[in-house]
Write a protein that binds this DNA or RNA. Structure first.
Lengths: 193, 193, 193, 193
DNA sequence: TATGAATGAGGCTTCATTCAT
DNA sequence: AATGAATGAAGCCTCATTCAT
């Protein structure tokens, strides 16, 4: 049963709801105006809350942003690791990475009309995980021996850019096979170098 | 010759100089703070001019930015077209495109600490030219038959992301061959689809 | 004895304790920040209590301040009256007044880094008592006939200013004799006018 | 002739006028609310100027305050030094000091309903000058040998406190002779210790 | 009575822009 | 055309105070 909350419980609920309200508003505002242009006021205005309330939850715009990134990365990174970790072939490794990322972006929905700076710790950690997974895949013979650093950058660039296509309506599966074929073929070419 | 300029001529000179002064300052400031965070004041402060003078040349920060983008695209786009147009093989086409772009970015020097929104008309026109060149290359048999739109996006994503590596110090030639091998191999893979 | 308190008694105790907690915090905060700069929040923060609780005891910062002054004046004024009332000579009258005041200030401890406005009713009452005592001393021939009002002001000014010296470490007895000698000699000079 | 100002001159004039406008407003506001309670907004409101204009002249409330103190001390301190320096007797020394100070305070006009903290560098310098002058007077035999430090404090305390009386309407000469007689007599008493 | 989150007024400051000179 | 002071809107944030629990 979901009834009868203690007073404290009810307050906790409200707090969580308000926090979510602010995060939702921030997501929207950042997507519309970009992080740098967005103001705390913009976020508050996208909310039924009073201005002071914002500061009961976050100290600054940066902190909300961090919370959003963390939330997102916390959802995405485990999925990616799982997808890549379970791969039994190069194709699997590449395709599952792209597919997972594209679906995640589709689910998020908003078309980012600005690309955020990618230097939040959580995001950087995601990059690092990718590099590690690539290196591990090379080590167990799944991928040919290539520069893991450059491949990381190449995969990310491709993924971010193509994700925009997907969000603009392209089919996930089509873009995934395009990207996968491109990289797989490319890996073949690279390994001969 | 250092001959006398007519008063009108002299003024013309000053006008051009002031415009350049402002554009130089803006380039610097945008690179340091990012477009959204930069303010008109910041630009003026990076200048020996008075605040009012700014408005004799530009109506807003956006307009300066546009002017910078145009100036840049006007330099880069012809180079890219020429590089791609002169290609006699797929490898040439891809490699020259990357190489030209990387060198251009290296020459600009500033490490972008923000990725700008890529929707300025001049930049979009650059994308469009890439697509056209790809299509033309496909038509004349230089490139295999692939989705020109997706390839455009893929190339740009790769180029922008790897350019950061180059600006961080990676060798242009090394990154160029990496990217070229990747794409060339990938095109082989794609054409079999 | 640690016997059981009735619920009401216990509550009474808590109430008194909370009130004292707030007053203690306020004393500290006022001493550190000065009255005008201190905020209710500052006081609450120096307390384990919740913000709302403050308002169960005091309506405003001013009211706490008043309470502090009253508390202080309630301690000091009787001591001063007693000291002056028991005087049997001019020297006694003056010296005992200074000595009592200096010791009181030393006991309080905090070096006031701001001089408060001296217009609280309790403090004004203290001034008035001083004037009355001076007048009475004049009447009973203890002090020469001088302007009681000006002497009141002079004594207070001297007392407050020298108290700072004492709080900064000067010896109470030394400062007391200095002040007493000064005033006693001065009274001699004045009475000849 | 006071006519025909150059444009630059006129602008300079306005700037000076605005600065004075702000200083006047600040003087008033500080006197009414005290330094700590006064806000920049309060000062602006006491002015026909726009809020932003304040910041063209001063960076903060503190800076205006400093400017006021400096202005004041720059006027008062030379007068005091001159008054004390020209003294040919103890009575002269003491009386002229009080008299000068009281007149200065009367001219300023506003009844301070708060005593500012006395730690501005300019004010502290004024204290120091007093101590030096006292020591010099002792050295040339004008004043008896007493603790110059304590006498400085005593004189200031008396002066500040009695100045309030003067500002409340007491006659300068009457208060001056009271204070002088008090101190002179006191010095006699002290020298015998 | 105690709690502490919500509120919105109001303080501080910077900004884009205007306009008299 | 160049200057730079004036303007007031608007951003950031803290505060006193209320009120549901």
């Amino acid at each position: 049963m979901d009834t009868k909350l203690s007073p404290a419980g009810r307050r906790e609920l409200t707090k969580t709801q308000n926090r979510e309200t602010i995060l939702d508003a921030a997501r929207l505002v950042f997507a519309q105006l970009g992080f740098a242009s967005a103001t705390v006021r913009d976020i508050i205005r996208a909310t039924p809350l009073a201005s002071g309330t914002f500061y009961n939850y976050f100290k600054s715009k940066e902190q909300v942003y961090q919370a959003l990134r963390d939330e997102e990365a916390l959802l995405l990174r485990p999925r990616l690791r799982h997808a890549r970790g379970g791969a039994t072939s190069a194709e699997d490794f590449i395709a599952e990475g792209f597919r997972t990322f594209f679906w995640f972006e589709v689910e998020k929905g908003e078309t980012g009309n600005e690309r955020f700076r990618l230097d939040s710790p959580e995001v950087l950690a995601g990059f690092d995980e990718l590099r590690q997974d690539i290196q591990a895949a090379i080590d167990r013979g799944l991928l040919p021996v290539v520069d893991a650093g450059l491949l990381t950058v190449a995969l990310s660039g491709l993924a971010f850019e193509l994700a925009e296509e997907v969000k603009r309506g392209a089919e996930v599966e089509k873009v995934t096979s395009f990207a996968t074929a491109l990289i797989l073929g490319g890996l073949g070419g690279l390994s001969k170098t």
